[in-house]
Design a protein around this nucleic acid. Sequence first.
DNA 1: CCGCGATTGGAAAGCGCTTTCCCGCTGTCT
DNA 2: AGACAGCGGGAAAGCGCTTTCCAATCGCGG
Lengths: 386, 386
Amino acid sequence: MRTQRSTPTPRRGAATLQQVADAAGVSLATASRVLNGSTRTVNPELSEHVKEVAARLRYVSHGPAQALARATTSLVGLLVHDVNDPYFSAIAAGAMRVARERDLLVMVANTYRDPDLELDYITRLDAQRARAILVAGSPPVAAAPAAALRERLVDYVHGGGRVVSIGDQGPDIDAVLPENAAGGRAAALHLAGLGHREIGVVTGPAGLVTVADRLEGFTRGLLEAGGDIHTTALQGDFTRDGGYQATRRLLEKHPKVTAVFALSDLMAVGALAALREAGRRVPDDVSLIGFDDLAICADLTPALTTVRVDTEGMGEQAMRMVVAAGPEAEAGPDADADADAAAGTGAGDAAGDGVPADAAVTAEQRTTIQSPTELIVRGSTGPAVS
Amino acid sequence: MRTQRSTPTPRRGAATLQQVADAAGVSLATASRVLNGSTRTVNPELSEHVKEVAARLRYVSHGPAQALARATTSLVGLLVHDVNDPYFSAIAAGAMRVARERDLLVMVANTYRDPDLELDYITRLDAQRARAILVAGSPPVAAAPAAALRERLVDYVHGGGRVVSIGDQGPDIDAVLPENAAGGRAAALHLAGLGHREIGVVTGPAGLVTVADRLEGFTRGLLEAGGDIHTTALQGDFTRDGGYQATRRLLEKHPKVTAVFALSDLMAVGALAALREAGRRVPDDVSLIGFDDLAICADLTPALTTVRVDTEGMGEQAMRMVVAAGPEAEAGPDADADADAAAGTGAGDAAGDGVPADAAVTAEQRTTIQSPTELIVRGSTGPAVS
DNA sequence: CCGCGATTGGAAAGCGCTTTCCCGCTGTCT
DNA sequence: AGACAGCGGGAAAGCGCTTTCCAATCGCGG
């Protein structure tokens, strides 16, 4: 019961290449060459004719079929904890800008920080044969899920995919890394410089690499600053409400703090609310400093002093890495020569007891890019008063 | 290694169903039935065995191939002006939640309000055979591009796709519509009730349906409230900076305003900055009211009075509509019996002359859902002082 | 004038998977 | 008992497109 090759089936909807070819009186091969790039050349007139016919028939290429035949797609996946969090939406925006330039479509997956969901999404993206996957945000806190994630990603890479993470996912995964430690250090020096000696730290879940790094830098900065500085750390969710709650507890437990360092701006927003609620004026009674420099920071009252992270830029970088690695050959080992120039952080600091090595390229030959952070002083920090 | 000589091609990367079938000693058909749902049943033991083999071989189904064979995908597109705008990221988050429930992957396209980009993205999504497309945000301001967009969408629908817009895209497109007019009216009544008689309106680009609707409701509300109220409208981009600029101009041109209505919260944030800069205290000197109820509103100083729009809910609704229409019943004209049950809107409509009919289903049989808005009174509005 | 490489169009072999038939078995109904 | 549904498994025909090969055709030098 098979119809001849004239017109297979007038399926509902789009015209097929075959139909275009028939209508134009050329072969399938020629139509394909005309309509979807090819190395082969086609007679200009013929080509024009085919294009006209295609337009008339409203032909739209069939992505899945192309993907099958070409063994590659133009889809990339983006894993974020929550698109609705400005930190991640900025990354997404950056990534999408580059994707657009490269004619890629990006599938965004909201993981809600659920490790199972992350794994599941990776599989789904893999199933779609996404050309690459961008992973934004810290890995799961628990060791087991984090390892599972890494393993799954490595698998995907072995399967021919590319992965770049924004934030560290471990030694196997290429990454663009915000200089969280440097930023934390800058925050510490700023606060110490203002004379604060009783500092509250509103942190996110211990175990989040982002949290650990920022904290580590902060601690180091405090040490560097010298003086007798006392800190109290309280932990909350890495959200506005987490910051609010943690700050409330902080004030209860340790009412004498003259400064609060919130490990993210979102938390700082919550902290600000808690501070205000407790009757503390910012920055007169208590200074507040955040981290990330979300767009809203400048419009808070007082404007929030914070550490700027180039979120959008990181998204762009990550997407660029992911696509650059297409036909390109491996770059030489000198490619990272620029990284260290950035900040005078701890270039030669071998002191490290707690200091994690900040090598730009590990033995495994993974590629990483540092994204600088910068202290932005606004109105929420001021001299300490006791 | 584990490669059998019987397998077609040990391609780089993933195992194919064929390889799994061979390794499990069953036919391709059986493997398919086991691993990817089917109506047909398979012997439990055999099934288990195939699954084991598949797991061992790390088989991951090939989406594009499935799409080709099944003539349908599990991809849906989401068109937004800018993911980085909290209004849209909230919609995206809502849509993704539902997508996740339905095992759909969503491809997000950032259009930057560029009509050409929108068209292009629709084509690209169509090419991927996206099962549906969600369009968020007002259509282009200019008539021609707007019409082109609509036409392209209708085309896509005729090709078998589903489209739902969030915000009105014209009479051909199913939509979930925020009750912008009602919200505008509520804002007007609130302000009028507080005694304001000189009101500044900070609007977005004339022509944006969203802007027009909110404005229309506002004007109507003012009329309803009666009294001798004077308004001055200034226009800016639909962004924070647009609000800032417009407000500056407003204050220059009309310094006596005692209240400002910003047509979006983002604009209100800018307005707040401009007001503060001009030395006006909010709400003592000037009341300020926004629209949308972004998460940040409550944390501004003063907390922003605004009209709540259930952005995330709209995203969910839209995605639900898009997938609900799955079975593709088509059926006779009786199939829609359920629709009207939703709201007691205008069962016996007929009435309207000037009033835009808010029928749930137009003659064209498109489906729309209203998403209610709600006035949220916070600290940025207060009694008028003269 | 003929042979030869260069072009350019077409036929056809897949890409990996779904699904329709078809076939051999059992179990059941007369 | 014989016929017949019902069930579980396999062979094979595509889905729409890319990409080898092949086969003409054309231009030219010998």
